Computed example of a mutant assay.
Amino acid sequence: MILPIVAYGDPVLKKEAEDIEKDSPELQQLIDNMIETMHNSEGVGLAAPQIGKSIRLFVVDASPFEEDEPTLSNFKKVFINPIILEEEGKEWDFNEGCLSIPGIREDVSRKPKITIEYYDREWNLKEEQYDGIAARIIQHEYDHIEGVLFTDHLTGLKRTLLKTKLNNISKGNVKVNYRMKFPKK
């Protein structure tokens, strides 16, 4: 089922998410719905807060970037209760966007390599390292479960310049080709 994506301005996007219990009912269905929602909205990642659920869960599909990084051709993962253990390297800029903030893209600096611990869909505990675009997507989605948006990484001046656009998004004055829920509409 395709779920509506919560727009900028909704308090759930600024809240630190709660851990998920292993026997959480309907978790597998929620994961399937999130993957379907992500693909329907042409995203490469989707975190549970973006569909109004303040839980530590996100899904990624980096395959649209396989032309830039061939190793991403089948990079599809589910992250449950993740913890980024380490971020390494010299920060690099990359133009990011967000399904909850449609129509706005900005350069964000992040470290190029991460080590993350998480449970996969079958509740196997994993500790893995990622770099490049895969690391960037994971960091962006991880921020969501920490209550951080990519716009929080921008300078104060840049955020001030985007204020009108951000307010318009929260009011629903934005054109999107996927279902959204606007907090001020």
Score class of each variant (00 low, 15 high):
I104L: 08
M38N: 04
G132P: 11
A48K: 14
S100A: 10
V44W: 08
I104T: 01
E67Q: 13
A134P: 03
L85F: 03
D68H: 12
I84K: 08
I114V: 01
P25Y: 04
R110T: 12
A62Q: 07
A135H: 08
T115F: 00
I31Q: 14
D61G: 01
E36Y: 02
F65Q: 08
I101K: 03
C98W: 03
D32E: 14
H39E: 06
R159L: 06
L30I: 09
P64A: 03
W92R: 07
N74W: 00
T164P: 07
N124P: 02
T115G: 04
I101Q: 04
Y142L: 13
A135K: 12
L72W: 01
I31L: 08
V59L: 04
N40Y: 15
S54V: 01
I55E: 10
I84M: 15
K126E: 15
F150N: 05
G147N: 05
S24P: 04
R105E: 13
S54W: 05
E122Q: 14
N95Q: 11
Q28A: 13
I137S: 02
E117Q: 15
L30N: 07
M34N: 11
I116M: 06
E146Y: 13
L125W: 09
V108H: 07
L85S: 02
E26A: 12
V108R: 03
A62P: 10
R56I: 01
E146F: 15
K163A: 08
L30P: 00
T155I: 06
E26G: 06
L30C: 08
V44K: 09
E86A: 12
G132K: 01
N33S: 15
T151C: 04
T71K: 13
S54A: 10
P112A: 12
T115A: 00
P112R: 12
